[in-house]
């Protein structure tokens, strides 16, 4: 995998995970889970805009906003009873927000597999995060094509 296309915010998150022991990685994922921002008020009343990530075992919804100057904002919502899924969403929200369209589309699709969480969380569960990233990119392509 080449590194030069991975935006620095995501690279930092990855490096933080890899610096920890397995058990601590799970704790950091929980911290991310607790940090998932609430939806901005203008979206809280518009569940219709959000797309369900059906690959995740828990109900998680995402919505991508692309500003005229190509800056991307990712919004996600997932229940408190699904902390792992919330953690995955929070990593992407924090790592992607404010990047440009090209930067987000350039994120390697296997980024979720590089966080060192496979053993702590299981490969099956990591697939949910891969789907989150894939659907985020697809929404961006749809927005810029529109």
């Amino acid at each position: 995998m080449t590194d030069h296309t991975l935006p620095s915010a995501l690279a930092d998150i990855r490096d933080d995970f890899l610096a920890l022991e397995q058990r601590e990685r799970l704790e950091m994922l929980l911290e991310f889970s607790n940090e998932l921002p609430e939806l901005p008020a203008r979206y809280q009343e518009h569940p219709d805009l959000f797309e369900r990530v059906v690959e995740c075992q828990s109900p998680v919804y995402i919505f991508v906003e692309v500003e005229p100057d190509s800056v991307v904002h990712l919004y996600a919502t997932a229940p408190k009873e699904a902390p792992t899924t919330r953690g995955f969403a929070s990593i992407l929200v924090q790592g992607i927000d404010g990047l440009t369209v090209d930067e987000v589309l350039g994120i390697p699709d296997d980024f979720p597999n590089t966080l060192g969480l496979t053993a702590a969380v299981s490969p099956l569960r990591i697939r949910g995060m891969t789907a989150l990233l894939g659907r985020t990119k697809r929404q961006i392509r749809e927005r810029i094509a529109a």
Partner: peptide, 9 residues
């Protein structure tokens, strides 16, 4: 649990 982090919450 199904969710590997739910216990920690």
């Amino acid at each position: 649990d199904e969710d590997v982090l739910l216990y920690e919450t």
